[in-house]
Write a protein that binds this DNA or RNA. Structure first.
Length: 582
DNA sequence: GCCGTTTTCGGCCCGACTGTTTTCAGTCG
């Protein structure tokens, strides 16, 4: 029984109570309880086991008793009983955008709908639209949401696969017969979402390596297993494929399995022109070719060189001009994680973050950063406990005090006082100008009214970035990967406005967002717009998103010079126009 | 179901949007 098990059970109870139509405040109490369990700084599982939960705010008598029962026996009667009232499959309905507890309850009770498949049927047959409170448009919206889910259900966010990929790579590297190991495919190209992970190993003993690959404890199901390849599912549904090749084939195989398909087509074309064929194992002479016998490539670099190209970093291999640039020697020197000196757009407990200012600062220092920008939510973001004027001014003071302390201790580290200020529906900002000027920097973001027309949304954002106090634009399109489509907005027009107003655009590297999309950065750079790689961290661990951010920035062809948070502290103080702390 | 210098009941975070409705319920952030 882990902390997460306890929290999840409380959350499921909340969901079940919603289905029952229970008192919303009771439901909220269970949700709050789940959050409290997650965030409690101490061994909450042991305390629950021992029945020693008194005095934790948010966990009253009833929850104490339930957590104790759950932690000590592994079961909770109250929960089991609630659960038995509904089929398990009903829960998948909650994953459909626009369906909440009331609607789920209605379709279940009056139409017997208890799965997404049946829901789809009810929409198509017109039965759903006849229900009271439902209508034609609701049915259409639900069908759209089902389709969106069907298209995305088998995909995973790049930032969410990092841990399993590391785990599998480490395990393969630990195998005595593995000479070389890489994760290839769209993961290596840093696509924002991936369908599966392609692992490649060089080995003289493929059978053993494959056997060990399919026998790891994290394997949920073996889909296929042969002499040189195997496919498995992990517990979370992520498919992982392993290909085993000989050491002398590894370079060509790595290039082949990294792709993209389009990039490979161009590469094969170049080989062809020179009298060779290129496949997943090797470069070979074409029939009747008079070219010289090709060498065996030790590395991808050598393959590219042989085809008269500079080495193309994997992130760029999408056939969007990288081959031409590699031919003419014009590939940019891409940014690297190590270039980052600080970051902006991070939350604390003051709004909806989970760590304090000091904890966030300490985590940034541990990462070797020289500065950390805090940007909690502004007052209109009620749901995120946004700061009002008074609380924001208090935070500015708190930051000043902490900075003074860092300076006294001789630490070369600074917190920049900012705010993620809501862009209101009409494009004005959530605080008045005086307060905005007191901040070291401002991130302006859209959090509501996301269904404006493209023209209105574009005008709204352009108005916001035109405000002199706005330093950077947060998550430009508002997309949530695999969850919510971006809102309608004219991205190039926004980029042009940011160029004009010298507003930085954020590369929000929270795995859910990766927004602005990598496809637009080349255009932004062309227009002279700078990027800031921001994790949108809601707890200290989220600062690690910077690693994903650096990879996605590379995918957008960004160099060190294009990204402001590669600046050292002194340069950044100049850039923001704030005085250094003596 | 939780909380309390308001102390054992009464309030609990607020507003926008959408679609179904004739004044509001449900969902989302």
């Amino acid at each position: 029984m882990t902390r997460e098990d306890l929290a999840e059970t409380l959350e499921e109870i909340a969901l079940l109570l919603e289905l029952k139509g229970e008192n919303p405040f009771k439901i909220r109490a269970y949700r709050t309880g789940a959050e409290t369990v997650r965030q409690y700084s101490g061994d909450i599982v042991s305390r629950a086991k021992e029945g020693d939960l008194k005095g934790i705010k948010g966990i009253g008598d009833a929850l104490q008793q339930k957590l104790h029962e759950l932690a000590s026996t592994g079961k909770l009667e109250y929960y089991e009983k609630l659960k038995s009232d509904f089929p398990d499959s009903l829960f998948e309905l909650f994953k459909i955008q626009g369906l909440g507890p009331k609607k789920v309850k209605a379709v279940y009770e009056s139409l017997g709908v208890d799965s997404i498949a049946k829901l789809k049927e009810a929409c198509e047959s017109g039965k759903l639209a006849e229900l009271s409170g439902f209508g034609k448009k609701t049915a259409e919206k639900i069908l759209e949401a089902i389709e969106f889910r069907e298209q995305n259900a088998d995909r995973f966010r790049l930032g969410d696969v990092e841990v399993p990929v590391r785990q599998i790579l480490d395990s393969l590297k630990g195998h005595p017969d593995c000479l070389r190991v890489e994760a290839a495919g769209s993961y290596r190209r840093a696509k924002e979402t991936v369908h599966d992970i392609d692992f490649l190993v060089a080995t003289g003993n493929p059978e053993d390596v494959i056997e060990s690959f399919v026998s790891e404890p994290w394997v949920d199901k073996v889909i296929a297993k042969g002499a040189t390849k195997a496919s498995i599912y992990l517990d979370n549904g992520l498919q992982c494929d392993l290909r085993a090749v000989k050491n002398e084939e590894f370079a060509c195989a790595l290039a082949y399995f990294t792709g993209s398909k389009e990039h490979n087509v161009v590469m094969r074309g170049r080989a062809n022109e020179r009298g060779y064929t290129l496949n997943e194992y090797r470069l070979a002479l074409k029939d009747g070719s008079k070219a010289e016998e090709p060498p065996v490539f030790e590395t991808e670099q050598q393959l590219y060189e042989f085809l008269e190209l500079d080495f193309v970093p994997p992130e760029l291999r999408e056939n969007t001009g990288e081959v031409e640039a590699a031919e003419s020697g014009d590939l940019p020197r891409l940014i690297e994680l190590e270039n980052l000196r600080g970051t902006f757009h991070n939350h604390t407990v003051a709004s909806d973050g989970q760590n304090t200012l000091r904890e966030m600062a300490d985590a940034a220092i541990d990462l070797g950063l020289q500065y950390l920008g805090i940007a909690d939510h502004s007052k209109s973001s009620f749901q995120a406990n946004g700061l009002d004027e008074k609380r924001l001014r208090e935070q500015i003071q708190e930051i000043a005090d902490l900075n003074a302390e860092f300076a006294e201790n001789g630490d070369k580290f600074r917190i920049f006082a900012g705010n993620e200020v809501d862009i209101l529906k009409d494009g004005t900002l959530d605080f008045d100008d005086d307060l905005l000027e007191e901040l070291d920097y401002v991130v302006a973001s859209v959090h509501n009214a996301m269904t404006l027309s493209e023209a209105d949304m574009t005008e709204r954002i352009i108005k916001a970035v035109s405000h002199p106090s706005v330093t950077m634009l947060g998550h430009l399109t508002g997309r949530l990967l695999l969850r919510r489509e971006p809102y309608a907005v004219d991205v190039p027009a926004i980029i042009e406005a940011c160029a004009e107003t010298e507003t930085v655009i954020e590369l929000n590297c929270n795995p859910w967002r990766l927004d602005m999309d990598w496809r637009w950065w080349k255009y932004a750079v062309e227009k002279g717009v700078k990027c800031s790689i921001n994790p949108d961290a809601h707890k200290t661990e989220h600062l690690d998103f910077l690693a994903v951010g650096a990879r996605v920035a590379r995918k957008g062809w960004l160099t060190r010079g294009d990204v402001i948070n590669t600046m050292a502290l002194g340069e950044m103080e100049n850039f923001l126009g704030v005085k250094a702390i003596s």
